[in-house]
């Protein structure tokens, strides 16, 4: 297989939160069709249900219902009494990734990395196998985004979370999102420097489909790989935004075919309809094809 024919790997588009204290949602959410699910032990769980939610997440992780699906666990923050128990239980339970909330500096990521290493060793899991999604939710986090995104080889993604960030910034959410523009760009730059995925904020007005689509299109246009979601109705809307049109897909296939022909012929330069293109354009075309395939699947 040529390097151009290789299927592009694209990150999850949708990162759907599921409250880990809610047995009904944990029993049904697997069918919603999100690319990734986040069992939430943090904000969605009241302090007196933290223990029970941790146990539900632990057993759900091992349930046939969730086997084969991309499940991430949002643990409680490093400075909370639940953090150590959350990490211990989730590594034991087989979690593939931990979403760490309220990350304000690289030290927090390194602390989680150390704890994961210790627990992986204790439970016989391969070192470095549990990935990290760092959620940036403060001015400090945004300012330190590059240091955070490059703090550990475990980092698979960085996510911006708007609610606490806007409180920290004394800003107010607006339909256009001007108040989030700097943070979005800072997080995106950090993700691209670290070569990891970037996730845009949750859109809280679940009944406003037009507003959600507009924000998803903005996020996609800026370069985000997807969004964090709180309502399953937003999953197909988001996936539609990320699915290329037939014309875009056909153009991408044309570019990749030309690149493969050039490679087969041993020609260095790739000619598409009389114009020379270079490898980044081919890579982008491969991603378009991958997104089209993902769109066909769900």
């Amino acid at each position: 297989m040529s390097k151009y024919a290789a299927v592009a790997e694209i990150p999850a588009r949708s990162m759907m939160f599921v409250p880990a204290s809610n047995a009904s949602m944990l029993s049904t959410a697997a069918v919603y069709g999100a690319d990734a699910f986040v069992f939430d032990l943090e904000d969605a769980v009241s302090p007196r249900e933290k223990d029970s939610a941790r146990l539900l997440a632990f057993h759900a992780l091992q349930s046939p219902l969730w086997r084969g699906l991309d499940v991430i666990i949002r643990v409680n923050g490093v400075d909370t009494p639940q953090f150590e128990a959350d990490i211990d239980a989730m590594v034991r339970g087989g979690a593939a990734a931990i979403r760490l909330p309220m990350v304000s500096d690289a030290a927090m990521v390194r602390h989680l990395d150390d704890r994961l290493t210790e627990r992986e060793q204790a439970y016989g899991r391969p070192p470095g196998s549990v990935k990290i999604v760092a959620a940036v939710e403060s001015a400090a986090g945004v300012a330190n985004a590059i240091a955070i995104a490059t703090a550990s080889p475990r980092l698979s993604a960085i996510a911006l979370a708007a609610f606490d960030y806007l409180v920290d910034m004394r800003a107010v959410r607006s339909p256009g999102g001007a108040e989030l523009f700097y943070a979005r760009c800072a997080v995106l730059h950090a993700a691209r420097v670290a070569k990891i995925a970037a996730y845009d904020v949750v859109y809280g007005r679940v009944d406003d489909e037009a507003g959600f689509i507009a924000e998803a299109e903005l996020a996609k246009g800026l370069g985000f790989d997807g969004k964090s979601l709180i309502n399953p109705r937003q999953i197909p809307l988001l996936h539609r935004v990320y699915t290329p049109s037939e014309a875009e897909t056909a153009k991408a296939e044309h570019i990749v075919a030309a690149a493969e022909a050039a490679l087969a012929a041993g020609v260095g330069a790739i000619n598409v309809d009389g114009a020379m293109i270079d490898n980044p354009v081919v890579d982008a075309a491969r991603r378009v094809i991958a997104y089209a395939a993902a769109g066909r699947n769900r």
Partner: peptide, 8 residues
């Protein structure tokens, strides 16, 4: 589900 019974 079984996982819920065990957890609770």
């Amino acid at each position: 589900l079984d996982c819920t019974v065990r957890a609770r």
